[in-house]
Design a protein around this nucleic acid. Structure first.
Lengths: 130, 130
DNA sequence: CCTTGACCTTCCAGTAACTGGAAACCTTAT
DNA sequence: ATAAGGTTTCCAGTTACTGGAAGGTCAAGG
């Protein structure tokens, strides 16, 4: 398969596939005589894996780690779980932070009448801090 | 005040202050004869504003907009409120997305026993998609 | 055989918002 | 005079791509 077909099938753009190759997240693709990259079903599978893991917010470095664990039939499942749980913790933190910010912004927005008049507690609060 | 003192007082690093100047988020500072930047209380105030707005997740571009509204005594409060509300929407989306990801990751983690044994549904799921 | 259009190649630059580090200058105290 | 610590500029690196230019390739149609 050419890179474009793979892109269509996996939802990973051709640009990204080349990029993943350039940073060695995936091994260099085979080439035709004219230099076109050729992909196997296994490559497609790997790109699906990457796509899904990235969609779950794993960084490329984490994906690399997960891929190497994926390829190692003898790794302990605990290693994989640890990565996922670290990621879960990040997410908990991020959610908590965003919720707190949301609360602050809501309060700010609610206190501003939001019309043509100039006075606006939002800016006063931003300036005054707290 | 020297840049270091301002940094200590506002919590914005000297590096960031210079960066903000370089992108014209803040006007160029006055200089001493020897070239050191000098800041007034008003500058410190502005940096507090920036610090707080950035902490609330506004992008630098949004902060620039808020600052210019802040400086314009005649702007409509509605303009400011609109920015805050747009930001609130982003946050709602992000929270919803993170919650969904959290759910998926929890399910994955729960189904993996996470010990020395090699078999691990996490990787199978990542590979299988869905 | 030639052209057209879609696809592919490489390479360079840009994104957001800084951060790190080097080399050199200034200030203050001893 | 010297040492420590603050400051200056400038360049590079970070993350994960994306856009775009210049040019080679492939398949179909005339």
């Amino acid at each position: 398969m050419n890179i474009g077909e793979v892109a269509a099938e996996t939802g990973v753009t051709a640009k990204s596939i080349r990029y993943y190759e350039s940073i060695n997240l995936i091994p260099p693709a085979e080439r035709t005589d004219s230099g076109y990259r050729q992909y196997s079903d296994r490559d497609v599978q790997t790109l699906h894996f990457i796509k899904r893991a990235r969609g779950l917010g794993f960084t490329v470095a984490e994906v690399a780690e997960l891929l190497s664990l994926y390829r190692d039939q003898d790794r302990a499942s605990g290693e994989v779980k640890a990565i996922v749980e670290a990621r879960l913790e990040d997410i908990e933190h991020k959610i908590a932070e965003l919720e707190s910010i949301r609360g602050t912004l809501r309060t700010l927005a609610d206190r501003c009448h939001g019309d043509d008049r100039p006075d606006c507690p939002i800016l006063d609060d931003l300036a005054g801090g707290n």
